[in-house]
């Protein structure tokens, strides 16, 4: 197990190195020490962009895992089941009604609408037949799509369409020093989740077992939903909706290492970070010197992995 942790750390370091030295402006490692412009570029753009991808990817993978445990379904994640769209709706409403509000207040409001959207999703899931696990992600896609559509509608009415594309389509090209720092809070949120790892794993075993182990089911559910909403809101506001990381990564890790979250959450975070960073690097290289948004790269990649998971999931059950 320790070996896997180190492999994760090493791969992440390698990817971060690549991310810092790949871009339209050439940077060479050997000349860096006598190149003040190069250092400036790193400090302002390349380093923030790399960190943003690492934090967003890692935190979203953790949030996806938490949501899958709470809903007890492996095919959901906050960015496709309404939480991300709920956050976008919140930030849009603040932009319309209180454009002068401090960024912190905007964040709290986006988190709150994200939480409401997740509670709504949970309430719907409760009413679905338990024997039909594939209904849950489908209903999630429709539900998320509806909220997303209402965001577009409101933005269209308020003439803010150019704003929302930033939130609805995740990409890292806009990440600069001074414009991504809120994401550190998402890292904090994901780290906090680790302290509740046992509780969340137990909730994944069902309400009866949770209660019999002395936990309040509703309380753990609420804590989990709050951390999901918080992470989603921070990600949507800073880099936009990044789909599929939260879906694919927890599934892969669960297949390989099981669901003892105290052991697997660090691996989930590292694989999420690595996958997002690699996708961002790929997006920078595929149409060089133009960029493909990371959301599109992950959308294509994730859709295929998702189909594979559905296929295998059915074969095994």
């Amino acid at each position: 197990m320790m070996g896997w942790y180190w492999a994760g750390v090493f791969s992440l370091a390698l990817l971060s190195f690549c991310s810092i030295f790949i871009g339209v402006i050439d940077l060479s490692v050997s000349d860096l020490w006598r190149d003040p412009d190069g250092l400036h570029l790193i400090a302002i753009s390349r380093f923030p962009r790399t960190i943003a991808a690492v934090i967003a990817g890692g935190a979203l993978a953790v949030a996806g895992c938490v949501m899958q445990m709470l809903v007890r379904n492996r095919f959901v994640e906050p960015m496709t089941a309404g939480t991300g769209q709920g956050a976008a709706l919140g930030i849009l409403l603040v932009t319309i009604f209180a454009p002068q509000a401090p960024i912190f207040l905007k964040m709290m409001l986006a988190s709150a609408t994200a939480l409401f959207a997740s509670l709504g999703f949970l309430a719907i899931v409760r009413r679905l037949p338990p024997k039909e696990p594939l209904l849950v992600p489908l209903v999630g896609l429709v539900y998320g799509g509806l909220i997303g559509a209402s965001v577009v509608f409101v933005a269209y009415q308020a003439d803010l369409l150019q704003f929302i594309s930033v939130w609805l389509n995740g990409e890292f090209s806009g990440v600069l020093r001074g414009r991504y720092e809120l994401l550190w809070l998402a890292a904090l949120g994901a780290g906090f989740t680790y302290f509740a790892a046992d509780q969340i794993a137990i909730v994944g075993l069902g309400r009866a077992i949770t209660t019999s182990l002395g936990l309040s089911y509703g309380q753990v559910l609420l804590i989990g939903l709050i951390s999901i909403s918080f992470i989603s809101a921070l990600t949507v506001v800073t880099v936009g909706i990044i789909p599929f990381v939260g879906l694919v990564v927890p599934n892969i890790i669960s297949r390989l290492f099981g669901d003892n979250l105290r052991r697997t959450l660090p691996l989930i975070a590292m694989l999420g970070a690595g996958l997002t960073l690699a996708s961002d690097i790929a997006g920078r290289l595929l149409r060089y010197p133009f960029e493909i948004p990371v959301g599109s790269v992950l959308g294509v990649l994730g859709a295929f992995v998702f189909l594979g998971l559905l296929y295998r999931g059915q074969r095994y059950e």
């Binding site: 046992d198 069902g206 009866a208 019999s212 059950e317």
Partner: peptide
């Protein structure tokens, strides 16, 4: 409890350990 869902992805020891929570 009466209803046993599908097996969780845990080892025997991991599940028994949750009893100490």
């Amino acid at each position: 409890p009466q209803t046993l869902d599908q097996a969780p992805r845990l080892s025997v020891r991991e599940l028994v350990s949750f009893g100490r929570y």
